[in-house]
Simulated scan of single mutants.
Amino acid sequence: MVISFCVKFNHLHKTFYVLSYSGRILVRAPKSLHRILAEKAREEGVSLNQYIVYQLSRAVSKTSETNRGIITSPHCGTTQER
Results as ranks from 00 to 15, higher is better:
residue 17 Y to H: 07
residue 16 F to Q: 03
residue 16 F to V: 01
residue 17 Y to R: 00
residue 46 V to G: 01
residue 10 N to T: 11
residue 10 N to C: 13
residue 8 K to H: 12
residue 49 N to K: 14
residue 8 K to A: 15
residue 34 H to C: 12
residue 35 R to N: 15
residue 34 H to W: 09
residue 55 Q to S: 14
residue 25 I to M: 11
residue 21 Y to K: 09
residue 37 L to Y: 14
residue 34 H to G: 11
residue 53 V to R: 04
residue 22 S to A: 10
residue 9 F to C: 10
residue 67 N to G: 02
residue 41 A to K: 02
residue 4 S to R: 15
residue 36 I to Y: 10
residue 14 K to C: 08
residue 61 S to L: 15
residue 24 R to H: 08
residue 70 I to W: 05
residue 69 G to P: 06
residue 36 I to W: 11
residue 31 K to G: 08
residue 30 P to I: 03
residue 3 I to S: 08
residue 58 R to M: 14
residue 64 S to N: 02
residue 18 V to M: 03
residue 44 E to Q: 13
residue 50 Q to C: 10
residue 32 S to M: 04
residue 2 V to H: 11
residue 39 E to F: 14
residue 26 L to T: 10
residue 77 G to K: 06
residue 50 Q to R: 14
residue 54 Y to M: 05
residue 18 V to R: 02
residue 41 A to F: 00
residue 11 H to R: 08
residue 31 K to I: 08
residue 57 S to Y: 05
residue 3 I to Y: 11
residue 68 R to Y: 00
residue 70 I to L: 09
residue 14 K to M: 10
residue 11 H to I: 07
residue 22 S to E: 13
residue 58 R to K: 13
residue 5 F to R: 09
residue 56 L to S: 12
residue 26 L to I: 03
residue 45 G to P: 00
residue 5 F to G: 09
residue 82 R to V: 05
residue 30 P to Y: 07
residue 33 L to S: 11
residue 59 A to L: 11
residue 70 I to V: 15
residue 66 T to D: 03
residue 43 E to D: 14
residue 70 I to N: 05
residue 51 Y to I: 07
residue 82 R to Y: 06
residue 40 K to I: 13
residue 29 A to L: 14
residue 10 N to K: 09
residue 27 V to L: 08
residue 59 A to P: 00
